[in-house]
Design a protein around this nucleic acid. Structure first.
Length: 448
DNA sequence: ACTCCACTGGAAATGAAGGCAG
DNA sequence: CTGCCTTCATTTCCAGTGGAGT
């Protein structure tokens, strides 16, 4: 009878190994997560926006319903940060003085329909409140979902703050041009609740977007009458502000683990063109991770450089990570044409995309989808901001066609997709084979 | 005016998830 | 559990459109 568990004589102790702190430049890595809610002394240069949001939300503590809000401005300018920080405190204060407030933040990027969004809101809210809603994903009509949402609010809350991040991306599957996009329907149903009465608790909706125009232009008159938000503009950070933001998060690292110029270089990268603080923060985090991985005890400019590529790749993945295999295959094909095409205008003709995609499908043993589908997907990519299109003609009575150009680095796209879906080969593995095929197809198409 | 062929958008078909009554 | 009914998402079908050269 051997009793191994109690008489271990191994010189290596799992417990001790686990207990010692990991060798890292990070003291508190989570400070560099851009989605994390930070305390107010880390917020830089958003005083007006902050006080405006506070002014609008605080009536919720005194039995009123806060007005709906539209926070707009480029990405990485603190919209989500400020909304999150204020509403979190609001909940805390509410707890002290007996007001039941719940906050639901919903990123609409990966939601495909109004129904999914409604489901997601109820699901989160139920969890916050601590009830079993037993709401079904499907088989229950969307309007029934709203009913249960309103019941939930009535029964358990004085105020529900619903934050809809990147709402402009909730476009949905419009069957025709006159149909309203999904976000308009969602907004209407959520805001209408205030007017129909019978609701004990109240709902305040905050929309966060970098494309306010797209939202405002697509609201039907019905929604306009129920959703009249207070608008708050978030402008780009300047280089100086980004540097301050990074400095105020410097304590994510142990002392003396950052080389002198690292902060200013990271800030410069974030300020490059678009004043995006999120980018700078992500960059710093990735750089630190690289340093750790290599066992270095200082973060250097060279770590920063490697991190830069990684950040770009991560952002591409954020956009296309959730699209289907078929759609990835199409974008991958388009990117291959950009990389290997011999033409110097680096235009990507739509019919050639289909051909390259067809080849890819047969090599990969995938089912081939129709040309219409591929066209629709390319148009989708255009609304995501990954490609741009232009209608043009080949001349000699060969009709019109659409030419695409990529908004992002083509090699980056190929690499990202190939890493996300192992079945698609990386650039180096296929160079010779593909280069010829691509150029031959281009020649056939343009007849030269 | 005609032709080429790529493009467009509505609508039908197909597929998938899941509720609910018996 | 089974059969039948929703709802929603995806894909294809198809008839019509459009730009430039002949």
């Amino acid at each position: 009878m051997d009793n191994q568990s109690s008489s271990s004589s191994s010189s290596f102790s799992i417990k001790d190994g686990l207990k010692t702190e990991p060798d890292s430049v990070f003291k508190n890595k989570s400070l560099l997560r851009s989605d994390r809610i930070v305390d107010e002394d880390r917020i830089v240069g958003r005083d007006n926006q902050l006080s405006e949001v506070i002014r609008l939300l605080k009536v919720g503590l005194y039995g009123d319903t806060p007005e709906d809000m539209l926070l707009y401005g480029p990405s990485g300018t603190g919209k989500s940060l400020i909304m999150g920080a204020v509403s979190q405190q609001l909940v805390a204060i509410g707890e002290e003085n007996g007001t039941d407030i719940a906050v639901v933040e919903l990123n609409c990027r990966n939601l495909k329909s109004e129904d999914r969004a409604a489901y997601s809101i109820i699901d989160q809210l139920a969890r916050k409140v601590g009830v079993e809603t037993k709401i079904a994903k499907k088989g229950v009509s969307t309007s029934e979902k709203y009913t249960r949402l309103f019941d939930l609010v009535s029964d358990h809350l004085d105020l529900a703050i619903i934050i809809l991040d990147e709402l402009d991306l909730l476009w949905g599957n419009r069957r025709s041009k006159n149909e309203t996009p999904a976000f308009a329907d969602l907004l209407y149903k959520l805001t209408r609740s205030d007017r129909i009465g019978g609701l004990d608790g109240e709902i305040a909706v905050s929309v966060l977007t970098n494309n306010a125009k797209k939202i405002e232009e697509n609201l039907d008159s019905r929604t306009e009458s129920t959703f009249g938000p207070q608008k708050i503009l978030f402008s780009d950070y300047d280089a100086n502000q980004i540097q301050q933001i990074l400095q105020r998060r410097q304590d994510a690292f142990y002392e003396n683990t950052l080389e002198d110029e690292v902060i200013s270089k990271a800030a410069a990268f974030g300020a490059q063109g678009d004043g995006d603080a999120r980018k700078a923060i992500d960059l710093l985090r990735f750089a630190g991770t690289f340093a750790d991985r290599q066992g270095d005890d200082k973060v250097t400019a060279s770590h920063l450089e490697r991190a830069q590529e990684k950040v770009e790749q991560q952002y591409t993945l954020d956009i296309i990570g959730n699209v289907s295999l078929q759609k990835k295959a199409v974008l991958y094909s388009a990117a291959l044409i950009d990389v290997y095409g011999e033409r110097d205008d680096s235009k990507i003709p739509n019919p050639t995309i289909y051909q390259v995609y067809s080849d890819l499908c047969s090599r990969q043993g995938m089912n081939l989808r129709s040309e219409e589908s591929v066209r629709r997907w390319m148009r989708e990519y255009e609304t995501m901001g990954i490609v741009q299109s232009q209608r043009t003609s080949r001349g000699k009575a060969k009709g019109i066609h659409t030419e695409y150009s990529l908004e992002k680095n083509a090699e980056n796209i190929v690499k990202t997709i190939s890493e996300a879906e192992g079945r698609f080969p990386g650039l180096d593995e296929i160079r010779n084979q593909i280069q010829n095929q691509v150029n031959q197809k281009l020649r056939t198409f343009y007849r030269y």
